[in-house]
Design a protein around this nucleic acid. Sequence first.
DNA 1: ATGGCCAATTTTATTGGA
Length: 254
Amino acid sequence: MKVATWNVNSVRTRLEQLLGWLSTHQPDVLCLQELKCTDEQFPALELSGLGYHATVFGQRSYNGVAILSKEKPEQVVRNMADGDEQARLVAARVSGVHVVGLYAPNGQEVDSEAYRYKLEWYRRLTRFLPTRFAPTERAVVCGDFNVAPTDLDVWDPRLFHGQTLFTAPERAAFEELKVACGLVDAVRLKRAEAGLFSWWDYRMSGFKKNRGLRIDHLLVTAPVAQSLQDAGVDKQAREGKQPSDHAPVWIEFG
DNA sequence: ATGGCCAATTTTATTGGA
C-alpha cells in the first residue's frame, strides 16, 4: 500500500500537476493540504476521472485538507469535534487502515497568538488520536506538521535556532504526540541522511540551493512500521513548472 | 552583485505562508 502526503498550496492552481502526479505514481491514498478552496470549488470530478474518491474538508481562502483514495473511505471525520473553525484535519479508514490527514498551524511569530494556538492544537491532537485508533492497529497520520523535528531537518540549524517551526516547545509537542499515540517517523526509518527536505522557500533560490526544511511527515503505528518497504520525498514535483513550495512525501508498506 | 516568492482576497495593497 502506497500512502503519500502533499501540501499543494492551492489545489485549483495546482490541478494539472496533481493529476499528473497521481497518474504517474498511483498512490492508494494521497492526503492533501492547503486546498485554499471550499468544498464546492474542489475539483472532485477531475479526480474521480482518475479513479479517486475525494474526502474533502475545504475552507474559503486558506487551509483545507482532503484524503484521496482508490478505495472507498469509511468512518470519515472532519476536525476534532471541539469547535475549531479552521479546516485542518480529516480522518477516514481506507482498506482497513486508519488515515489522518492534517495541516498543523504555522505559528507565525514565537509568542504570538498564532504560536499559542499552534501549541494548543498539538495538545488537542495528542488527546484526539487515541480516540481514533490504538497503537496496535494500522494507522498513518500524515500531513504538513509545520515542525522540523531535529537538526537534520533544517538546512542551517544555527540560523533556525529559536525560529518558528524549530523552537523547543514545538519540537517537544511533536515528540509528545509520537510517544502518546504510539507513532514513529516512517520516512526516517528508511532515510537517515541530512539534506532531506519537503519544503523549500520560493525566495532566494531556496530549492536550487537545497535550503529547505523537513516539515511534512508520515507518522505510523508499529504494525505499519514493521511492514515498511520504502519511503521518500519526490523532489521532482518541486522542479517543474509552477510548483507548490512543498514536495510530496510517501511511504510503501504492507 | 550571478539575484528578485506565491496565492487568495481585502485587488494595484494586504495577509498568510514557513
